[in-house]
Computed example of a mutant assay.
Amino acid sequence: MLKKAWEFCISFIPPSKANRVKINTRAFTKSGKRYLIPKDVSLKINKVIWELQNQSENTSINIPVNVEILFVLPDRRRRDLDNIMKTLGDCLVYSGILKDDSLIYKQTLEKVIIKGEQGVIIRIYPYDDKNIDVKLIKKLKHYKEKVNGI
């Protein structure tokens, strides 16, 4: 079955959320935490948002989605893809593509190394919860009963 997909590209690897520096001050935020984002990181995040907005064609997704992300990396340097994904999730929201990153029900992260090349390809599909393996849910229930019985 062919699913409708939205596809977006980013010309470079976005910075990881780990690049944010926690500062200890009393702040009036929901979590009580404040973070300082270095200027170079902030500029890169803004560039990601700009690139996504230029491709969005007023896309505003407000349904559960499956997000597939392919990272094209120029070298074997260690990168924490799940932290980069956190930044990408925020950028998808800030660019107006997703109404909220809590709409991401499934995500697949993959990296490929191509010397001298870099970028990100993002594919977003409507989430199909019909593919949930009922056997896995039963296995989880069995495990929880076993643990709770200890």
Rank of each mutant, 00 (worst) to 15 (best):
Q118S: 14
R77K: 15
E57R: 14
Y94A: 14
G96F: 07
K47V: 06
N131W: 03
Q53T: 11
N148V: 06
L43P: 00
L70S: 06
K115T: 11
Y35K: 02
R77H: 08
K139L: 12
I137F: 12
L140V: 11
N148A: 14
M1N: 05
K3G: 02
K139D: 09
L136C: 02
D75N: 15
S42T: 07
K30T: 09
L98G: 09
N148Q: 13
A5Y: 11
N58W: 06
C9W: 10
Q118A: 05
S42V: 04
S102R: 15
I97Q: 04
L52Y: 03
D100H: 10
L73T: 01
C9H: 14
N83Y: 09
K22F: 01
I104V: 14
I150K: 10
E68Y: 13
C91W: 02
N62F: 10
G149H: 11
N24R: 09
N19G: 12
I84P: 00
K44C: 04
E110L: 09
D80N: 15
K106R: 14
N46E: 15
E68H: 13
I122S: 01
I37R: 02
Y94I: 09
R20E: 07
S102G: 05
T29C: 03
T29I: 02
S60F: 12
S56Y: 03
M1F: 03
G96P: 11
K138P: 00
E7Q: 15
S42R: 11
L52C: 07
L109V: 02
H142M: 12
G32V: 05
E117L: 04
K22I: 07
T108S: 13
K141F: 06
T25W: 08
I49R: 02
V93I: 08
K39Y: 06
G149A: 15
N83K: 15
I97L: 06
D129E: 14
N54R: 14
I150D: 13
N83D: 11
D133M: 04
G149Q: 09
L140R: 11
F71E: 01
I61A: 05
Y105M: 11
E110F: 02
F12D: 00
K44D: 05
L81M: 12
L70P: 01
L103Q: 05
A5R: 13
D129H: 12
E51Q: 12
Y94Q: 13
P126L: 07
E145H: 09
I61V: 07
V65G: 01
D90R: 07
D40T: 06
I63R: 05
Q53V: 09
L88C: 07
I114G: 00
N54L: 07
K144Q: 12
N66P: 00
Y105E: 09
V134D: 10
L81F: 06
D90Y: 12
K135I: 08
N24K: 11
V21H: 10
R78C: 02
D75A: 01
P64G: 08
T25G: 05
T25F: 11
D133F: 05
K144R: 13
G116M: 04
K130G: 04
I124F: 07
A18D: 11
I63A: 07
P38C: 01
R34E: 13
L73P: 00
I121G: 01
D101W: 15
I104Q: 02
V48S: 02
A27C: 13
Q118L: 07
W6M: 08
I150N: 12
E110C: 04
V72H: 00
S56R: 10
K4G: 03
